[in-house]
Computed example of a mutant assay.
Amino acid sequence: MSFRIGYRTLKTAVGAGLAVAIAQWLQLDFYGSAAIITILCISVTRRDSLKVSWARIVSCMIGMAISGLLFEIMGYEPWTLAIIIVLFIPIVVMLKMNAGIATSSVIILHLYTVADMSVSLIINELLLIVIGVGVALLMNLYMPNSDKALRVYQKDIEEHFKTILHELSIYLRHGESKWEGSEISETVDLLQKGQSLAIRNIQNHILRYDDQYYYYFRMREKQFEILERLMPYVSQIHETVIQSETVADFLDELSNAVSPANRVPYFLERLRQMKDGFKEMPLPETREEFEIRSSLLYILHELEEYLQIKDRLWNHADKKKL
């Protein structure tokens, strides 16, 4: 494994140093804690950073209130500290502010160490919290642009879709194929990674809850499920009929047209023409021909759903002006 310093590590290091520098400049006690708060608040996404920072601020306020009250009433003793933690943690968990437990514990220990609940100490702790959280939010303003990586995932998925559709057409034409099917598992992996990155990209926008890549990967995932359903039916067709060639030609045309562009109306019309053409053909003469044509009709039905999925999700994306 190669040694690598990521952007998040650099942000954390710079943020920790900056937080300590500000706390020292203000001559705060326990100035090193500002760095700890900053490190804890730097997150993977901007939205998560805001959520975590808010949880830490609220939990610190609760921790200071509970500990200040009990230390003054019961004394600055280890058993008092234990009681404070027993009361504090369930309250924070109940309020769903679990992320602030570690930061609040640091503040509570400061109060215990000084053993004097004064106004200057409260101000000191509040400034440490503000500096730590503020610097973390400042560092999290920078997030790397994910568009390039998302476009790479999009391109790779489209190439895999083209291969799968083309190989299905080969099988319909010849009743066999030398294809090993590696694109199937690779597509699953690409879809998972692409969706994860798209969701993270959304989380880096405070007021945006979806985007075109989110809809794209969601669309491809549903289309891929249909392609997986098709495969057993295609593999059952060992002999070719006239209709097999027609469907194979359609699959090849569909393979060549795989892209984010929406050409659904054209292909839906082609499907309708094929179905009408099949109805006008003579009835099957053998049971085997009947089964083959039934499988082909099912394949056309699934391909129609494959196209309509794209049409529905892309129309939804257009309504949101993506």
Rank of each mutant, 00 (worst) to 15 (best):
Y214M: 14
R220N: 05
S185P: 01
R173W: 03
S244F: 10
Q212G: 08
I226Q: 04
A198N: 02
E176A: 15
E183D: 12
Y216E: 12
E225V: 03
I237T: 13
P232A: 11
Q223D: 05
R220G: 04
I184W: 15
Y209A: 05
T240N: 09
L227N: 01
N201H: 09
E245N: 10
N204E: 01
I242A: 13
R218I: 04
L227E: 03
H205M: 04
G194W: 01
E180K: 15
R220H: 06
I202T: 07
F217E: 00
L197R: 01
S235A: 10
Q195I: 12
D211V: 03
Y209S: 12
I226L: 09
N204H: 00
I242E: 10
M231F: 07
S196H: 04
R173C: 00
M219Y: 00
I237Q: 08
K193L: 01
E176C: 06
E180T: 15
S185V: 14
L191A: 02
R208W: 05
L207I: 05
E245K: 14
E228V: 10
I184K: 12
E221T: 15
F217H: 03
E180Q: 15
K178S: 15
I206K: 03
Y209E: 08
Q236W: 06
G175V: 01
L190I: 02
Q243H: 04
S235C: 07
D210M: 05
Y233L: 14
Q192D: 14
E239A: 04
E186V: 13
R200Q: 11
V241A: 11
Y209M: 06
S235N: 08
S244P: 01
M231S: 04
T240C: 12
R200S: 12
E225W: 02
P232H: 07
L191N: 02
E183A: 12
K178P: 06
E245Y: 14
Q236Y: 02
S177C: 13
G181H: 03
Y216L: 15
R229M: 13
R208C: 02
Y233R: 12
Q203H: 04
I184S: 07
Q236T: 11
E183G: 07
Y216K: 04
G181N: 05
A198V: 02
Y233M: 13
D189M: 14
I237E: 08
E228I: 14
D210V: 09
E180G: 13
N201L: 00
N204Q: 00
Y213Q: 10
M231I: 12
S244G: 05
V188T: 09
S235F: 11
R218M: 13
I202V: 15
